[in-house]
Design a protein around this nucleic acid. Structure first.
Lengths: 168, 168
DNA sequence: TTGACTGCAAATTGTTTGCATCATG
DNA sequence: CATGATGCAAACAATTTGCAGTCAA
């Protein structure tokens, strides 16, 4: 098990060159679009970028790259194992480099994303495998709930109907 | 948190009448559409119905009920706390009566849904609250992974590129 | 009676696809 | 040079919304 990261750990440094080398090794064509997407992801650090975010970023350097191409690039990069995408909430997916598996918690009130190290889930994963034969791959969906702040606030407003309005 | 159900509990029997009484108590109008949606959900038992499934079911008795109305009914029933919806995978949401909180595991290969009792998560929930101040509300998203069968199969095919193709 | 609910059509959002063209390996 | 990648427009699926008519309380 990797050493448990603390919240706020710096993202593991992976260079664009490494990623491109990896593509070459996998016999996956290194195209401008793919390079641009990877660049945007590397520059994005550990942030959570939607396809549209990535398109905006990519298009600063390559204005002609179409959103559809972004999606296709992401697909191939994901198939290659360089990229992961996660669903943070109703619909939109976000992408990040796959080199450091982590789980996401999203606050359904304010949209804050908390990253937690993978091993927090190891116990649950073991339980589920034992009891249900099910192997979770938890990275693909965020866990939804309330961040510290919003939970506190919710306490305060206690009594008002709890209508969940996740940021859309 | 309500008292945790035991693993394997039968779904608590809730009658249409109870649900409608609840609506009345909450001063929420009892309309044909809402009754029909509740009926479909009750009849559906513990299955996971999409809005379209529900529309089909509802429309057998009330053919004029529009899908948009199904969505609006579900919204109000959910706001009232009678219904929950969960995202099982890319996009589509499924609805069920809210009387028995449980977590969903979805196999990303075959789409099988496994329900697990809430209390399997209590430990994780405690950990996350302690370490991150985050209160998970896990019902809203399914945990994705591989069911026993598909995990086995994946073992067999080991070596082939793992391209995730969740049933869409 | 009246405000909440409904039907319908049309808009939105996020993502995918067909096809002709282009460029990597 | 062949295959796979791209740009574009158009298709898609799931969900939401504006509006005018209808109905539960």
């Amino acid at each position: 098990m990797p050493p448990a990261g603390r919240p706020g750990d710096a993202p593991a440094p992976i260079s664009l060159e490494d990623l491109i080398a990896e593509l070459r090794r996998l016999r996956i064509r290194v195209t401008p679009a793919r390079q641009a997407v990877l660049t945007a992801l590397v520059e994005g650090g550990s942030s959570h970028l939607t396809a549209v975010d990535l398109a905006a970023s990519v298009q600063q350097a390559n204005p002609q790259v179409h959103l559809a191409t972004i999606y296709r690039s992401l697909d191939s990069l994901e198939a290659a194992g360089l990229v992961d995408h996660v669903h943070l909430g109703h619909g939109r997916g976000v992408y990040h480099l796959a080199h450091e598996p982590h789980q996401h918690l999203v606050c359904e009130t304010c949209g804050t994303v908390v990253q937690v190290p993978d091993d927090v889930f190891s116990e649950l994963a073991a339980t589920l495998r034992r009891a249900y034969g099910f192997t979770i791959r938890p990275h693909h969906f965020a866990l939804v709930g309330l961040c510290a702040e919003c939970a506190e606030e919710a306490q305060a407003v206690q009594g008002a109907r709890t209508t969940f309005s996740p940021p859309r």
